[in-house]
Design a protein around this nucleic acid. Sequence first.
DNA 1: TAAGGATATAGTAATTATGACTACAAGTTT
DNA 2: AAACTTGTAGTCATAATTACTATATCCTTA
Lengths: 237, 237
Amino acid sequence: MEKIDAQRIAQSDNSAIDAISIDCVIFGFNKGTLEVLLVQHAQGDSKGEWGLPGGWINKDESIDNAASRLLEELTGLENVFLEQLKVFGDPKRVPNRRVLTIGYYALIKHEEDDLRASLVLTDAKWFKIKDIPQLIFDHNEIINYSLKHLQQRVRQAPIGFNLLPEKFTLLQLMHLYEEILGIEMNKPNFRRKILNMKLLVALNEKQQDVSHRAAQLYKFDAKIYKKLTEKGFNFEF
Amino acid sequence: MEKIDAQRIAQSDNSAIDAISIDCVIFGFNKGTLEVLLVQHAQGDSKGEWGLPGGWINKDESIDNAASRLLEELTGLENVFLEQLKVFGDPKRVPNRRVLTIGYYALIKHEEDDLRASLVLTDAKWFKIKDIPQLIFDHNEIINYSLKHLQQRVRQAPIGFNLLPEKFTLLQLMHLYEEILGIEMNKPNFRRKILNMKLLVALNEKQQDVSHRAAQLYKFDAKIYKKLTEKGFNFEF
DNA sequence: TAAGGATATAGTAATTATGACTACAAGTTT
DNA sequence: AAACTTGTAGTCATAATTACTATATCCTTA
């Protein structure tokens, strides 16, 4: 492979790429609705416009670490579910310069108070999926891609739990799937199916302060969660 | 988001990244075995060592186009199944420099004669998955990742067909799945399941020159293939 | 405090899918 | 023609799925 080897050396320092960034699609689930966290640009050409939170990769920092650092800078949250999506590399995605961006997506427990406190300091806001405005660059495309990816992913691995609080009811879980997948499900059948998976552990607790019969609270079994995540499974509903 | 916006501008020209390459895992299926096409380096520090075929992105070329150009330069094949995997970005993946690489994987119909002719010109060789030697950089990791990814992917979409010739028998198809997934399947049950999907069209042809009863040949129905690929489906065996 | 409303949870029955087989068919080889 | 190899059809018990109905439990309010 002389050709390729030669190219590796020749082009390695005068790359056609001006820069490479990271952009992160942060999903949250609030009151039955899937939301995405966006930030408003305060300066530059795109002042006032909304876009995905993002940034740059530091020297000696893996790209996964860069993404989780950026996420923590924005939200104050650590140990969040965060996965790489893919690189977006259309030559015209950013005007005048060739900038690739590595897309990441995160799933966070939306109701955390830390998060709300941290966010008021910046121009960041949750948008319902349906209400996302026109964003800078190709950020709408990145969100669309990540949503499709999420829809695929929740059917292969029980990652949806990352959007729920520690303790949740079966109906909350079902509504989460309904919202992500855009479908309607049947309560009794959902119960049976999810309980058969042995993924959930019933707690000795019930919902509080609801104006109807309180539902059983569950958490998921971390061991089985791990096993299912590694092995992959099928969450067809 | 002043902070992020400022960073976008400040760091955009003195990036911590020296270069970004593309590396491609090319899968083929030959005599019941899954193989990967590797190339031997002819010069540089890694002379004589094997690695994934790869190269650099040109100006004004999308990364997907760059990947398919590189694939065509090596194999002479066009219109090949080719998808991005993800970026590999460990700071130490290449010694002395910070080089990210975008991983791609391709599925090709292995027996094409064009391919064989083209390949003799270069130091490229098919390796069985089990026989892959120690490769340069993190290329073993990239192959492992792509294999896992392929295993997931063939259960969600009927992409496995890209590894088979136009016309194939049900048993060839079953062996392909067995090889990719590393499992054993049951013939009659496989037949029933795959035929129920209505994805296959029986041809008016049978196998030729086999020393036993000739099997029915099938092709896949392009329309249903497309529908299933978009919608996603479940190929659990 | 009893009735009504709302939601949780249990159960049923018809249908379909799955897994583990057996049996037979259709060619090849000796 | 018999033996062998692989293809294809069919069986049967079990499990999963779908579309329901029924009942339990708790809160609200009249």
